[in-house]
Design a binder for these strands. Structure first.
Lengths: 197, 197, 197, 197
DNA sequence: GATGAATGAGCCTTCATTCAT
DNA sequence: GATGAATGAAGGCTCATTCAT
C-alpha cells in the first residue's frame, strides 16, 4: 500500500502517455519524460527498469481503460448484436476524442517521426482507390446498394490488414483460407436492399 | 538510361526489401543492407541519399507490384463487385505468400524488434474478445446468422483501425461520423439469411 | 560501546567480504551488499560513508586476521628461520582454504569481471614459460639442482612482481638496483646440491 | 596490407597505452583516448569494438615487446642459468625504465584510482614486516647468511602471491602442496655461505 | 561509381550518494 | 538507527552520414 510510490508511478505513466503519444516510441527520449514529470531520469528507472517496460505499461493502462468503456457500453444494451456494436463504437469514440491516445495505441510504436505511417497510408490509399473504383461501378450498375464507397473500401482494407497482422503474429491458417468468409461478410454488407428492409 | 546503374539500384532495392522485411526499419542498419548486397555503404549512399529514402523506395516498388496484381485480378472479372473482391483477394493472397513482404508493408515501420507489434496484437485481442463474445451470443439467439465470429470480430476491428488511421493522417470528419455507415456495413454482413439467398 | 551498532557493523563487514570476494570491487554494487545483509542501502551508509571505506574496512579486517595467524604460527617455532617460514606458510595456507578471501585480498580490486586478471595471468605465463624453459635446460646440464621448474619460474616472477609493485607505490631505488640481490637469492635457491646436504 | 589503417591502429594503441597506464582501466574514459589520438570516438570503435578489447590489445602488444626483449637477452647468454636470469632481468629492467608500462602491466587493471593498490601494498607490507623481523633475527643468530631482509621478505611474499594467483585462475593443486618446494627454494637462497663459495 | 575509414551527436542505462520520513 | 525513493553525473556504445582516395 505504498500509496506515495504508486502516485509517482501514476504520474510517470500519465506523462509518458503524453510524450509517447506526441513523439512516438523512438523519438520520445527518456529525458523528455523525466522533464514532463519533473522526476529525474534515475527516478524513472527506479520505477520502470527499461524504456520499453514503461511504454508497455502505458499501453496496458490505456487498454484497461478502453476495455472498461467497451464493456460498460456493451452492458448497457439489450440485444447481443447491439452490445457488439456498442463495444466497437465505444472504442472508436474514445479514440476519436483523444487523437493522442489513438496515435499511441495504433501507430506510435512506429518510428521515423510519422513518415513511415504516412507512407503506409499512401500505399493503402492506392489499394483503396482500386477497390473504391470498382465499388463505385457496382453501385452504378445496381449490383450493390448505394453505400459510401470511400468508407466501404477502407473497411475492406482494414479487415484484410487485421487478418494479416493476426496471422503474422499468431500464425494459424493462411489468411487466404479466411478469404471466403471475409468476402461473404463484406459483400453481404453491401448487398442490394431487399424490399421491406 | 544508365542501365548499369539501374541494375545496381535494383540489386540494392532487392536486398533492402529482405533486410527491412526481416528486421524492420530501425533494426535494419545500413551496414546490414550493404553486406546483403555486397555493395559498400558509400555505394548505397550514392544511390539513395538517406536510409529513409531507400526504405520508401522499397515500399513504393512493393506497392507497384501489388497494385498491378490487384488491377489484373480485377480486370479478369466480369462484374464490378467481383472485381472489387478480386482486387482485395489478390493483395491478400500476395501477402499471404510472402510473410516477409507482409511484415514489411504492414508492420515493419514499427520498431523495438517486434515487441511493440506484439503488444498491439495483445491489446487488439482484448477488444476482439469482447466483440466476439457478444457476437457469439447473437448467433445463439439467432439475431445474426451463423458466422465465424473469430473472423467477424477481427474484421470489425480492422475496419475501425483503418478508419482511425486514415483520420489521423488525412484528417477529415471524426471517425464517429462514419460510425453509422460502418455499423450498417458490418451488421448487414452478418444479418440472418433471407430465404432464397 | 554501542554493542548493537557494532554487531550491525560486523554483519555488514561479513556480507561485504562475501560480495566483494565474489564480484570484485567494481562489480559489487552497493545494493548487492544491502541485499546480502538485509540492511537497506541507507543503513549501510550510516555505518560506512563511502563504498570505498567499506571495502577498505573489509580488507583491514581480513589483514588483521591473517597477521594474527602469521604471528601465532611464527611464535610456535623455535628458530627464527622456522618462524619466518611458518609465517609465510600460515598466510598461504589460510588463503588456500578460502578461495574467496584470496581473491579479495589479491585480485578483487581488479575490475572487468575477472577478464583483466586472466589477461595478466596469460601475460605472466608467457614470461614464466621463457624462464622455465631455460631452467629446464639448466637442470639437464646439471647447472642447477633438479627442481620443480614450474614453481621456480613462478617464484622468480612473483619476486619480480612484488619488487616492482613496491617500487611503484613506495618509490625508492629502481628495482634494477635490487637485481643483483634478487638474482643471488633466487639462484642460490636452485644451486646444485652440496654433498652432505 | 591496409597500411593506412594499420597505422591508425598503431596510433590508437600507442595513445591507449599512455592513457590506460596513467589512469587505469576504469578511470580511463574512452573520450580520453580519443582526445589523445585526435581520433573520434567512432573511429576508435571502428578499430576496437569494445573498450575492453582495446585494453587487452594494449596488453598483448606490451607483452610481445617484453617477451622479445627477454628472449633476446636470454639468447645472448652462454649458460642456461644465465639465460634464465637474463630473461628475468630484462623484463625487470624494461619495467623499471618505464613506470607507466609497469603500472599498466601489473596493476592498472585495478580501479579506484590507485587507492586499492595502495591498500594492497599496505596489507602486504604488514606481512612483509613479520617475515623480515624473523629473518633479521635469523641473520643475527647466523642461521642464515647476511642478506637484505627487506628484499628477501618481499621475494618470499611475491612468490606466495604469484603461486596463489596462478592457482586462482588455473586451478590445480592447492598452493599448500607447493609449500615444501617453495620453502626449500627460498630457504636455500638464504642459507649460510659455504666456505669457498 | 565505389570504398570504407572516420565522424560525432545522441541516448539509454548505471549506480554511488543523499535525504525526507 | 533504518528505510528506500529520488537524484544526477557520467560513460559506453550505436549508427546514419560524410568524404578523401
Amino acid at each position: 500500500m505504498t500509496t506515495a510510490s504508486d502516485a509517482t508511478r501514476e504520474r510517470i505513466l500519465e506523462a509518458a502517455e503524453t510524450v509517447f503519444g506526441d513523439k512516438g516510441y523512438h523519438d520520445a527520449i527518456v529525458d523528455d519524460i523525466g522533464r514532463a514529470t519533473s522526476i529525474s531520469k534515475g527516478g524513472l528507472y527506479f520505477h520502470f527498469p527499461k524504456k520499453e517496460v514503461l511504454f508497455f505499461a502505458v499501453m496496458d493502462r490505456l487498454a484497461d481503460r478502453l476495455v472498461q468503456k467497451a464493456e460498460m457500453a456493451a452492458a448497457a444494451q439489450t440485444s447481443p448484436l447491439a452490445s457488439a456494436e456498442a463495444a466497437l463504437e465505444a472504442v472508436l469514440t474514445s479514440l476519436s476524442k483523444r487523437r493522442r491516445i489513438a496515435r499511441l495505441l495504433i501507430v506510435q510504436g512506429y518510428s521515423m517521426g510519422n513518415s513511415f505511417e504516412r507512407k503506409r497510408v499512401e500505399v493503402f490509399d492506392r489499394f483503396a482507390a482500386i477497390i473504391r473504383d470498382h465499388l463505385d461501378r457496382a453501385v452504378s450498375s445496381g449490383e450493390v446498394r448505394p453505400v459510401d464507397t470511400h468508407i466501404a473500401a477502407r473497411v475492406w482494407l482494414g479487415a484484410m490488414n487485421e487478418v494479416i497482422i493476426h496471422w503474422l503474429y499468431e500464425g494459424g491458417d493462411s489468411p487466404v483460407q479466411s478469404m471466403p468468409t471475409i468476402k461473404r461478410l463484406l459483400s453481404a454488407g453491401i448487398a442490394p436492399e431487399r424490399e421491406g428492409q
